[in-house]
Design a protein around this nucleic acid. Structure first.
Length: 592
RNA sequence: GACCCGGUAGCUCAGCUGAAUAGAGCAAUUGCCUUCUAAGCAAUAGGUCAUUGGUUUGAAUCCAAUCCGGGUCACCA
């Protein structure tokens, strides 16, 4: 039980004993005491001062005294200022907390709760390489899944690959027309980048053709439909759907190249999936929904044969679920996929990590499933995140303004390498160890950068300014971990007997108090589906430890008890940092 | 036009289920390496929390209106 909950319980009991009032524990406000006042935690009393018809001073004194009488092992002092009751928690309470947990590698994780949750994230297109926006998606999805796992859920990470459709045909036709048989091997290009080049090539050519047609007197609208490369693409899509062998063969070949490229990147960034779904397998799945929906009167058919759902009563619009030519649209596929996923895994919850431009779409998806009274409908949750933008605005793959993921990582590795060499602290590392360290630091910086802000908010990345390694960053936290490990290596004999220390200095206590908040922090992060809560927390732990480190020596502590105590504090800090960073998918080095 | 999200220090962001004098990091200025790793610590400076009104003992936080920015409302994905 966390100290805050414990405090609330005792206060609720004190209020009952003293004044015979029932106060819901959740309604009590407990804050950490501001540094300018005496105390550790503070009860904000305003909400019930009036009701009890007491002066704040009397009320504070009464509650404070009661707490100290009934639980002297927790509460040692109190003071009341205005409506605030500041409580001091016994040093011995913190010491016993530390002794109980300093060596516990599992501190903060919860036992299995029997719930199963699917996390769909990443969801790439097979016509272009991964960019910075995809990285935010990947890191978020992975991290949220990891947080859920640590707090007791069985998690299944999945991915839906958008491997078919008109956009895929665009890169296919461009390759057919312009590649002259070139391959990733022949051009020494990573497969996904190779295919991505033809997607760009398509758009260049298309634009050119449209301009020519317009110059020849066509309107823009007609020209966009009449351009020969676009017509060819549409024919190719029809051929694909008809299963024309040479189109299928080309499709398989080019997708194969992309997957080879993706594999490399995914492996490097640590994304993994228990189950891959491919749109080419699932795109027809939703059609049974359409039939069923028509039968049940959830959907209706217009004269032209298209099928719709009327959501105006729910404050939304009419939404198309089947085209007049009988082909399915995006939402139809998603209905089918949701069903498929449920049949595969019988999940309790299903998270979709998808950008916020699809908020409306996801709302509609859930609503339709609810109208079908699907048992899994309520468990669907759209983890909506904001786009990563450049100072100039949104990234556009067609305009070539995307920040490529592979290039980004490479750049970060170089910065890590230069910085490490400059500082010269790990000169004895082998080439292999060095490369591993560069990767840990580079990805640590990148992941932390993308995860430290609230997922819901869009964020701006300026490519002109490389990602920092100082301050509120991954490397700062990693560095703190390495510092602690350095102490622990030198003091290899971390004696396991209890520390005999009986009192705490301010920074010692502050650190233990902060470490105690780790489980509650995870809980909050999970509830909010928000890894930035962990990033901020872990940064605060590192920052506080560095202050402590500058102020007090561990190895040359004033006494043997103090040394012992500080070794335990340092050890636990390292554990919590490693664990918290682990929730973000970030490794921490032993040395750096 | 309708709906959704946002606007906090020069920049990037916390704080938003109301609570004490609004916090970090970067950038700026100034100190601190005869060593538990300076990728660090300490200090200074930096704010009309978009604007106006309201609710409240108390508002950056809740409500309303306005302004600004973004997104969505496709027989695109």
């Amino acid at each position: 039980m966390s100290i805050v909950i414990e405090i609330k319980t005792h206060i609720a009991k004190a209020l009952k004993d003293l004044f015979d009032v029932e106060v819901a524990e959740q309604s009590l406000t407990i804050n950490t005491t501001k540094p300018e006042f005496e105390g550790d935690y503070t009860l904000v009393m305003f909400s019930f001062i009036k009701e009890l018809k007491k002066s704040p001073e009397d009320l504070g004194a009464a509650i404070g005294k009661a707490l100290e009488t009934t639980n002297p092992e927790i509460f040692t002092a109190h003071n009341t200022i205005k409506g605030f009751l500041n409580l001091t928690i016994a040093d011995t309470y913190w010491l016993s907390f530390l002794e109980k947990n300093y060596a516990n590698q599992q501190f903060g994780s919860s036992p299995a709760n029997g719930k199963k949750v699917m996390v769909e994230y990443s969801s790439p297109n097979t016509n272009k390489p991964i960019h910075l926006g995809h990285l935010r998606n990947n890191f978020l999805g992975w991290s949220v899944a990891q947080m859920l796992k640590e707090s007791g859920y069985e998690t299944i990470k999945s991915c839906i690959v958008n491997d078919r459709g008109i956009h895929i045909c665009k890169s296919m036709i461009a390759w057919q027309q312009f590649a002259d048989g070139a391959t990733p091997q022949s051009t020494q290009t990573k497969g996904d980048h190779f295919v991505g080049e033809y997607y760009v090539r398509f758009n260049d050519e298309y634009k050119k053709q449209v301009e020519e047609l317009i110059a020849g007197g066509m309107t823009k609208e007609v020209a966009e439909k009449e351009a020969s490369i676009m017509k060819g693409t549409q024919q190719m899509l029809l051929d694909w759907e008809a299963g024309k062998p040479e189109v299928i063969e080309l499709w398989k070949k080019m997708n194969g190249w992309v997957y080879e490229g993706f594999d490399v990147t995914y492996k490097r960034i640590g994304s993994d999936f228990a189950k891959m779904y491919y749109e080419s397998d699932t795109y027809l799945l939703g059609k049974t929904f359409v039939e069923e929906g028509l039968k049940q009167g959830i959907f209706f058919k217009k004269e032209d044969g298209s099928v719709w759902i009327d959501l105006t009563e729910d404050g939304l619009d009419e939404k198309l679920v089947l085209r007049k030519d009988g082909t399915s649209v995006y939402i139809t596929q998603d209905l089918g996929l949701a069903q498929e996923k449920y049949e595969d895994f019988k999940y309790d919850q299903s998270l979709y990590v998808i950008a916020d431009e699809q908020n409306y779409h996801m709302k509609v998806l859930k609503l339709i499933l609810q109208k079908f009274k699907k048992p899994y409908a309520d468990g669907i949750f759209h983890l909506s995140y904001g786009m990563v933008e450049l100072p100039s605005g949104r990234m556009k793959s067609r305009e070539g303004t995307v920040v490529d993921a592979d290039e980004m990582i490479e750049e970060m590795v170089n910065v890590a390498k230069n910085k490490t060499e400059e500082l010269g602290k790990v000169k004895d590392f082998s080439a292999e160890e060095l490369n591993e360290l560069y990767d840990i630091i580079a990805l640590g910086a990148l992941k932390f950068f993308l995860l430290r802000v609230d997922p819901k908010k869009r964020m701006i990345f300026n490519p002109e300014e490389s990602i920092d390694f100082h301050g509120f960053t991954g490397p700062f936290v990693q560095y703190t971990h390495a510092r602690i490990k350095s102490i622990l290596r030198k003091e290899s004999e971390v004696r396991s007997q209890e520390s005999e220390a009986r009192s705490l200095l301010k920074l010692e206590k502050d650190l233990i108090m902060l470490l105690e908040q780790y489980p509650a922090t995870i809980e909050q992060a999970v509830t909010e589906h928000n890894p930035s809560v962990i990033a901020i927390y872990v940064f605060n732990v590192a920052k506080l430890f560095n202050s402590f480190y500058a102020e007090h020596s561990v190895m040359k502590a004033e006494s043997d008890e103090k040394k012992q105590l500080r070794l335990h504090i340092a050890g636990m800090t390292a554990n919590v940092i490693a664990s918290g960073m682990g929730l973000l998918g970030i490794k921490v080095p032993e040395r750096m």
